[in-house]
Amino acid sequence: MIKLHVNGTLHTIDAEGETPLLWVIRDNLGMTGTKYGCGIAQCGACSVMIDGVVTRSCVTPVESVADKAITTIEGIEQDPVGRRVVEAWVRHQVPQCGYCQSGQVMAATSLIKAKAHPTDDDINAAMINLCRCGTYTTIRAAVHDLAGSAEHAA
């Protein structure tokens, strides 16, 4: 039995310690906002926050996060920064199919929590999740909006 703190709630999980956190969240806890896209840390669809830091849950063994605070997209609006990110996503009409967006919102929230006013380089380094619908430029605009900065011409 593994104890998990997810969105402020304590869960007792019956799973092998090496089970990826992603599948524990989706199957054991039945919370399906966190998405599976590749399973090998390539796409970022499965991103959650562990103690406020964005983490790809598909390659995170559940036993490694037993004592940590896990935030999934279902809990994002409990976080003041997360709430701002969601509002920016709505304001900029970011999602298309939406499948990558739980992970994108997680990545942006983690970034702004770590640095309220990220530079272009910070944004480039942090916003690396794949989006097949091509919402990259809209994501950037939303993050810049949150950071209170203008986008620099490249």
């Binding site: 399906t32 906002g33 966190t34 999934t72 997209i73 279902e74 994002i76 609006e77 969601v86 996503w89 709505v90 009409q93 970011v94 999602p95 199919c97 939406g98 967006q101 739980s102 919102v105």
Partner: peptide, 13 residues
């Protein structure tokens, strides 16, 4: 405004 944007930004879709 798109009807599905909030649901897709909060994992509810």
């Amino acid at each position: 405004a798109r009807l599905d944007v909030r649901a897709k930004s909060t994992g509810k879709a």
